[in-house]
Design a binder for these strands. Structure first.
Lengths: 196, 196, 196, 196
DNA sequence: TATGAATGAGCCTTCATTCAT
DNA sequence: TATGAATGAAGGCTCATTCAT
């Protein structure tokens, strides 16, 4: 008699294993075997639940994006000022899934793969636009629409740049935290009069 | 006696073909065959001149780094103010190799691969340090050492962040140019009193 | 669940195919493809069961050695005089595996390869020592230890020499049998007073 | 202006290099490059003088056989008794080319290769027959033709067997010498009344 | 006479996919 | 629902051969 309701459990097991494997070995060296072994499951299960490797990769990226989204939602659900919201945006981009430091490199691996993979590129675009619109809508409390967009662009670039350098430089937690502080400071500097 | 003086020509042909292939297909999908076909040569020639695929990849990265370096050197060789030098640094990071838009994504592919490849990581580190030290030494004309380093960090992050977003967003030339302007503007903003 | 209990069958299929291929083509010309084709299986299966070509080669040699060993064991298990045991040793070295004439040359191929392959050399050493110790322990029924060792050396050399010349000379069954008789006769001649 | 009379020099250089390479690496791992590098020449020269790798291999084997032959000739040219001649035959088989201990394994490599290579097999046959006929003709001084042939067979087998075990067992010079003594002793034992 | 650049077939290995159970 | 045996295409590498010089 087949076990019932295993699907969500198995899917999450495999997504977690994928994150692990990509973090440790890189996307390039991650295979169906490195994943299934980490999950303690057979390789065939991936075709069963995700249709194939590509399906699992996409599901994993979606999972990361959802995490990022809900992380911000959770931080802001109690209500907050636009400035606080900007800080939360920075925080969630630096920490959300990155609670396990492992996922930072995973994130970057997927990012780059998206340049040559249309379905990943679509997902990555959604994310970039969401970051921009989140930032812009908050900046609009302090700036004219045109300027708010400009500020959002710069803020997004600074967030990505600092985060990227931290990841590529194999930063430890302290350095990572410092990068986050620098990002916050820069974002704050884009608000006229400190948001008063 | 076999044809003489072909070595540098062949090596460059293969490096160019590698840049092409990685730009179009990504590092993951770039094979000995995609490269040699683009170079109009046989696959065996790669082993002949570079020992193997890995050797060619590394030579290609070294070529990119050297280009970046000599590009800046050329811009500044006539003598310039520290502020001008900062602008040149931004420019060379945005444009050097990137004259052919193809190399932008190549650059990024190698960057990410460096997370899981020691020899590439070493090369990438050299580059990161050179950018930082170039920036810091220029900032020292206007700031105390400590602050100059801080400014160099922020400037480097902003350069990378804007460049990265331009690349991943598949920016056209105009958008790329705009990102460069934003980077310059930001770097200038880190100089007290506009460098007077 | 996949087919169960196939492992020993597949392993034997592949070992048999290896013996065939090496016998016909030589170790040098034996490839993963010549083996897997003979086994009626795909090339990938070799990695699956033996980790690679080298693993299969070693397993095949081990199989030959085990056969030789159990062949002698079987002949002598009913109990026998030391002289009879010596004859059985000769017989098993001439015939054990060699019932299929194919394996004779295979055996020699592995033997020679062992000069440049450490893992094979270790296996080959075990075999050489076993032959010597089998002979020596039997000779000790008739000779002093020192002399028994000497006799074992000479007997082993004659067995190998006759067998080798038969193999290299592409002997037919009759010639092979004659070589075996000569070996037995020589071994018997090393026993004082014909073993009375 | 092309150098004249280089041919015999180059041919010998390449044959020597082949012996070296096969001794050290085995026939399997010996390539046109390992040979030409040892000879201090280019790889193309092999095609030039021997038509290809196979031609060089055959020439090398012929060289070994000629050495063996002339070694015996030289030993016996002063005239000798049949018994002495038998001893010389043993000696030349143990030592002739084996002056450089390196060639022993080379010899064996070629021997085995001859099982799957017709032109080598023909050469190897010539050698086997010569050994047999040399031995038989000497034994005929002491035995009837039929018995002389039998003795020649046994003697040849013992010579090969002892020599083979010495080679495969990676014998040092002392052990090698001892094997030669055992061979001589055995051959002498085949002569009725010690040749008086 | 001699070189070594260049080729491309063939090798072993890796791996996503398929499928019987 | 889950397995892992089996496949076979594709990858990088090795190497004997060819040939312009």
């Amino acid at each position: 008699m087949p076990k019932i309701g295993m699907e969500p459990i198995r899917r999450q097991q495999l997504i977690d294993a994928t994150l692990d494997s990509v973090a440790e070995l890189g996307l390039h060296a991650t295979t169906i075997n490195t994943i299934s072994k980490r999950a303690g499951l057979s390789s065939g299960i991936i075709a069963h639940y995700f249709g194939g490797k590509q399906g699992l990769i996409e599901a994993t990226v979606r999972y990361l994006l959802n995490n990022l989204k809900s992380n911000l939602l959770q931080k802001t659900q109690g209500g907050c000022t636009p400035k606080q919201r900007l800080m939360f945006i920075v925080e969630s981009n630096f920490s959300s899934m990155q609670q396990q430091s492992s996922t930072t490199r995973t994130w970057l691996s997927f990012w780059v793969q998206s340049m040559h993979d249309d379905s990943l590129h679509r997902l990555q675009n959604v994310n970039a636009k969401r970051l921009h619109s989140n930032l812009a809508s908050s900046f609009k409390a302090y700036l004219k629409p045109e300027q708010a967009h400009e500020a959002a662009n710069l803020a997004a670039a600074m967030i990505d740049g600092l985060w990227l350098r931290a990841v590529l430089g194999k930063a430890n937690e302290g350095e990572f935290k410092k990068a986050e502080q620098q990002a916050k400071h820069y974002v704050a500097s884009l608000i006229p009069n400190g948001g008063e």
